[in-house]
Design a protein around this nucleic acid. Structure first.
Lengths: 338, 338
DNA sequence: TTGAAAGCGCTACCAC
DNA sequence: GTGGTAGCGCTTTCAA
């Protein structure tokens, strides 16, 4: 490996000058700078990371901690895109991404390995963390950032989608399409994002004075099949809903195929709205109307946010909200009830 | 951050002794060792990575280079599991994983950033790399490992599945089930893995003296829909195949739903075999008979292989083959042609 | 504009 | 068994 000494020798100067030239610290004459950079190029020099880290007390690396496991998050195309955006922006800042799945055995009470070893300047959290774990992680003397989630009451930087506004907007749109009997289908889980969507939905329903609000939210299920059963029951009753807003596209697409199998036409007899704009929404039959999230942007902005905090740890905590934008495809019908 | 000096002070000894005690380099009395380890625990000491790397000239990190991009590989559940296995084993060896998507602009002619900076001790390649890129990467003065692919003629460590044997075994199994008119459906791509499966398949067909071999391989398509068209055409002719071996589960599952939509019963009128044992095979209707690959094992063994090479760069190049094992579910019928 | 030198935290050699 | 110390490659202060 070629070191700064080799360059100094080749360019006939001291290592201090080489360092200055490379890092653009002025005080180097144009001619020596040119000599030095030329030598770097010919010898293929790149500053050794370990030496640099040791001296700078900075690793130019951020840890990506996935929960519950690497595989679970990778498989998730949402996370995959977020990571892509994150990596992209970090690389641009000469930063790198160190991968880690959360390991309960190691981390309970203790911190993930790579953190204690000073391998990273900050940690990005991605996944459906229980808030207890996040609270524990917060004790780390390290910049922390939560992507696509948030723990209310905890002072940790975060970037999320504005699910409340989106939930509200979905109701507005459906109403604009002439729907009055609207349902939301949401798993019986307690994660931040879907909760906000539910609240936004309820807000919209109330604002438009629609239906007994408590009837319009179907959440007493954990799995798609159960959810469908509940919905089917509602559909077969009188006063059946004409539109259903699903917590996410996965649920919506599952519903779509079940409805189809049962001969319920979408959007003919029932309109369907998803959330996330996953791959596959556009290919569905009919193409699914949903709320688009710019997942890469979450990653990109996340990279920027944590880099800023690394530089300025005393900055005020920031919670950034990204919009989810309505994508009209063909799963919502316009009702012209005379 | 607490350093080795803090421990030395707390334990009333020199930093040299602390280092020895921590790294188990003998020559430390039981009593001092105990004092030192106690101090480490109370002060929460972990050796600083940068200092260690600089001194050891080793980073205890391997780079994971994904192609074409991070997101593409993450989305792929096969890669996700491989990475999981890789990470698991690396962590156990106190190694870490540095993430990088392949960046053509940077890498053409030049090497990926993190490599030149001495950030990693080795690089693991995962994805559908063109062999030209691999050949370029091979010039790096770094241990290299290809997971789930291989470039024939290039001396690079690799771990792959034995697709030839598996392709051959599929024919054997189908024959054992009474099938004689067997097709293989494979995309018109030239990647190492599917090629080996094709060769194994052809070998089996020949060995059993089945059908004009050239007719039994359907590859003139790039997309699922075209593949289906070709197959459907064959099915409608006389001498229709009774069993189809698909290059992978994705294709098989796609076919399955198309066949179903067209009223072709599986396995009643046609038997179907996939490859990979992806999520979803077991849930399909009917559950898909396929070849199981232990993806995590590819990652785990990969970790071991590259760690070994890092320690002993002069080792002979190794190509390791893992078996793909037949998983009998319900998409293959037994034909008792009297 | 340049260079000498200190020191980041660690391991390993060598002397005691 | 233990400790002093050199030195890994780098950046930065200070002096020239």
């Amino acid at each position: 490996m070629v070191s700064i000494y080799d360059i100094a020798q080749a360019a006939q100067c001291s290592i201090a000058t080489v360092s200055c030239a490379i890092n653009g610290k002025g005080r180097v004459s144009a001619s020596t700078r040119k000599r030095i950079l030329a030598a770097c190029r010919t010898l293929g020099y790149a500053p050794n990371a370990a030496g640099r880290h040791l001296r700078l007390q900075r690793t130019e690396t951020v840890g990506l901690l996935l929960y519950p496991t690497c595989a679970s998050e990778f498989r998730n195309s949402f996370a995959a895109e977020v990571i892509e955006g994150l990596e992209d922006r970090l690389i641009a800042a000469n930063y790198h991404l160190l991968l880690g799945g959360y390991r309960p055995q190691i981390a309970s009470g203790t911190i993930p390995q790579f953190i204690g070893q000073g391998r990273v300047d900050g940690v990005v959290l991605l996944g459906k963390y229980p808030s207890t774990i996040i609270a524990e992680l917060q004790l780390l003397p390290l910049p922390l950032l939560i992507l696509d989630s948030e723990v209310t009451g905890l002072a940790i930087d975060s970037i999320t989608t504005d699910g409340f506004a989106a939930g509200r907007a979905v109701v507005d749109r459906l109403v604009a399409h002439g729907h009055r009997r609207i349902c939301m289908l949401a798993y019986d889980h307690d994660f931040h994002n879907p909760r906000m969507r539910r609240l936004g939905f309820l807000d919209g329903m109330q604002a438009h004075g629609l239906w007994p609000v408590q009837q319009s939210l179907i959440t007493a299920f954990q799995h798609d099949a159960e959810g469908y059963r509940l919905l089917a029951h509602r559909l077969s009753g009188s006063e059946a809903p004409t539109a259903v807003f699903c917590e996410n596209d996965h649920l919506a697409l599952d519903l779509l195929s079940r409805l189809r199998a049962d001969g319920v036409s979408v959007p003919g007899s029932l309109s369907l709205v998803g959330f996330n704009d996953d791959d596959g929404c556009a290919q569905a039959q009919p193409p699914l109307t949903t709320c688009h999230i710019d997942k890469k942007a979450i990653g990109r902005l996340g990279a920027e946010m944590i880099l800023e905090r690394i530089v300025a740890p005393e900055l005020a905590v920031r919670h950034r909200l990204l919009p989810a934008v309505w994508i009209e495809r063909q799963s919502v019908a316009t009702r012209t009830t005379a």
